[in-house]
């Protein structure tokens, strides 16, 4: 089980307090009606799925309830850092 640092609570808590929220920094389309099929595919389905550094969202669902972002290595599962939602990509 992962130990995850919540940047809002500033505490390391067990994974069962958190819900995974998928890849981070995928912005919703600014003007959805102008997107073509290829752009929709990219937004909805294509994911980087890297072997290594992965930017991802977590939600401290059984804690403060807030979303934040994390950088984790997908080979070792070690967290490099976590940071608040809205902060720039690290």
């Amino acid at each position: 089980m992962l130990l995850i640092h919540c940047p809002y609570c500033d505490e390391k808590r067990p994974e069962i307090e958190f819900a995974y929220g998928g890849e981070a920094h995928i912005a919703r389309p600014h003007d959805p009606s102008t997107l073509n099929d290829e752009e929709w595919e990219g937004h909805l389905f294509i994911r980087s799925n890297p072997r290594g550094r992965h930017h991802e969202r977590w939600r401290h669902i059984h804690g403060c309830g807030r979303f934040f972002n994390a950088v984790r290595d997908t080979v070792t599962d070690k967290f490099e850092t976590t940071y608040k939602a809205g902060e720039p990509r690290r």
């Binding site: 089980m1 992962l2 069962i16 819900a19 995974y20 992965h54 997908t74 080979v75 070792t76 599962d77």
Partner: peptide
């Protein structure tokens, strides 16, 4: 498990 990983191991819960 809920998260993306290549570690070939998962959590006990």
């Amino acid at each position: 498990d809920q998260y993306v990983s290549y570690s070939q191991r998962g959590a006990l819960h």
